[in-house]
């Protein structure tokens, strides 16, 4: 049983019209592991995550979660064990910060009393370094870094088994980015969750990753432990990690 990967993708392909974004992605993530996906903008990193969550249905290929095949029919059932931090935060701007964080606890199966849900949300906000005074603000009143933290608090609120982070540090200043990286690492370790993170920030990669996968032209070009990214022997990884203008990845000018 312990050998069953938490997440396994085989030959996942997805096109939008004539644009072939994913052309057969193979990837496995072991339980409790933190995988970081790197790759240029528009290479389909977000699409890959959305396929796993069930927001996008792949054209071909298989996705197993805990050894169970993901189908359009059962996708909803997995959501209770997922948490996701979206690239743009995706906070509900009609709700206050604490209502965002406690979203799952205000309705549906896990419903709590309002006061209890609020306490829980404030606890989670504190975990990501935000005071109780932010609880009653609206997302639009927060800075970018604070919005990311609220998104993080919402993603971890229900103690998910699998967490997805889509560009958690993009658009933040280096200091705030570092704080978020540390937070992600701590949270993943203390919750024992399996994590998949998208980033093109090499500092993040080194902080967050156990393993790294490089996505380019719709396939995983390289996958390996984070210690190996500097001597991967893979020209794509080499170019990306060192930010070189020349190499197999054609820079758009």
């Amino acid at each position: 049983m312990t050998d069953t990967p938490k997440i396994a993708l085989r030959g996942v392909a997805k096109s939008f019209g004539s644009k072939h974004v994913l052309r057969g992605v193979d990837l496995t993530v072991a339980r409790g592991q933190s995988l970081v996906i790197i790759g240029g903008s528009g290479t389909g990193k977000s699409v890959t995550l959305k396929c796993i969550i069930g927001l996008i249905r792949p054209d071909a290929g298989e996705i197993d979660i805990d050894g169970t095949r993901l189908t359009p029919r059962n996708a909803g059932g997995f959501l209770d064990q997922f948490g996701m931090l979206f690239q743009g935060g995706a906070l509900f701007d009609s709700m206050t910060v604490w209502e965002n964080v406690a979203f799952r606890f205000l309705r549906g199966k896990g419903r709590l009393k309002r006061a209890d849900a609020r306490d829980l949300a404030i606890g989670k906000l504190r975990r990501v370094g935000l005071g109780a005074d932010t609880a009653d603000l609206f997302p639009a009143e927060l800075s970018g870094g604070m919005q990311k933290r609220v998104g993080l608090a919402r993603a971890i609120a229900a103690e998910p088994k699998i967490i997805f982070f889509d560009e958690p540090t993009t658009g933040l200043d280096p200091i705030m980015a570092d704080v978020i990286n540390d937070l992600i690492r701590e949270i993943v370790v203390e919750m024992g969750a399996t994590a998949m993170t998208i980033t093109h920030d090499m500092t993040s990669v080194r902080k967050i990753a156990d393993r790294v996968a490089m996505l380019h032209e719709g396939v995983v070009q390289w996958e390996g432990p984070v210690e190996r990214i500097d001597d991967s022997g893979n020209p794509y990884v080499h170019q990306f990690v060192n930010g070189l203008p020349d190499g197999p990845i054609a820079a758009l000018r």
Binding site: K50, L55, F82, F86, Q87, G89, L91, F103, R107, G108
Partner: peptide
């Protein structure tokens, strides 16, 4: 604008 800012996707991921 909820669609564009991925709030609708976020609802789905929150089992709603």
């Amino acid at each position: 604008s909820m669609r564009v800012t991925e709030q609708i996707d976020a609802l789905t991921t929150l089992s709603t």
